[in-house]
Design a protein around this nucleic acid. Structure first.
Lengths: 158, 158
DNA sequence: TATAATACCTAGTATTTTAGTAGGTTATAA
DNA sequence: TTATAACCTACTAAAATACTAGGTATTATA
């Protein structure tokens, strides 16, 4: 599991979709403008999200994208896995390449580590992020931001 | 916080150092051979680790590297932060750039998300990984691996 | 004191990934 | 019929990753 800006683009775009779930669909053009990413690049990211059945596209005027499932059924890990190629582990075929098993081992430990990370991100759902977002937006509307007022938005796990 | 193969190289190399803490030092040449990374590239990674005071180098024959602190005081997050440049968040200066605050917000949420990730990796220490590693090595020595025997090495948190 | 081993340093190049561009086609609402 | 959108493919640009080459500085030891 990698974690780069590419994954961030995808998560933010998906969040955009989740926040606008009340609308029938959101066009990539809108998202591209909001996020200042090139439209065509976004299209390429969404092709991957579509293949993983995370979004659904509708053509023609009034068309656009919407989430293929409920925001509460889409985890951050799923989004990142869809666009970020998985890390490659150089495979040491059997024991013969491994001096005293040491290489194989640290290897294995790293796999475990990324598994843990995957678990972690698998338990954060788009729905939770969305509600946090709406809440913060509401808060900002009612109590306008003061200078130096850094509101902490906690992301609840599980 | 990014997470790429570069960070993996660094973590594995540091684990190598931790496992060999009984020796006075380990040469980069050894690590390079174990991990099949170019020596000079490793040197560059270790320059960063040195700057963050995670390792200590000793010159001359019999020299090499050792951990600058106890393995129980070095977290995975520290290692990754040392070598992987932090993700850049496009800064939207104040409210004027943000349409309805939406952009700022997803932005902020992403910062929170990476904070969570950072917290998570900050609570896994090299010492724990090292002990797991030694344990698994011992296990392999006493009960030789059978075909299809995938031993699960758990990484304890906290 | 000479030598070899090692860290340590700098400036490159090659490769891969990320990001963007261009120019399409298909589907569909109006 | 037209405009709007998804959808697709091939290419280029920019950045990051990985490596190469060729040094200097330090130090144990023969």
């Amino acid at each position: 599991m990698r974690l780069t800006t590419k994954g961030r683009y995808a998560v933010t775009a998906m969040l955009d979709l989740a926040i606008n779930h009340n609308k029938d669909s959101v066009t990539l053009r809108n998202i591209a403008e909001n996020q200042k990413i090139s439209l065509s690049y976004l299209e390429q990211l969404f092709a991957k999200l579509r293949k993983q059945d995370l979004v659904k596209g509708m053509r023609g005027p009034g068309g656009g994208y919407r989430l293929a499932r409920s925001a509460d059924e889409i985890s951050i890990a799923q989004i990142i896995r869809a666009v970020d190629e998985p890390m490659e582990f150089t495979d040491c075929h059997g024991l013969e390449n491994c001096k005293g098993g040491e290489r194989c081992l640290s290897h294995h430990l790293w796999v475990q580590l990324t598994d843990q990370l995957d678990d972690f991100l698998s338990n954060i759902y788009l729905g939770a992020l969305m509600r946090e977002s709406e809440q913060a937006l509401e808060q900002r509307r009612t109590e306008p931001r003061q200078t130096g007022d850094r509101q902490k938005v906690t992301v609840p796990m599980h």
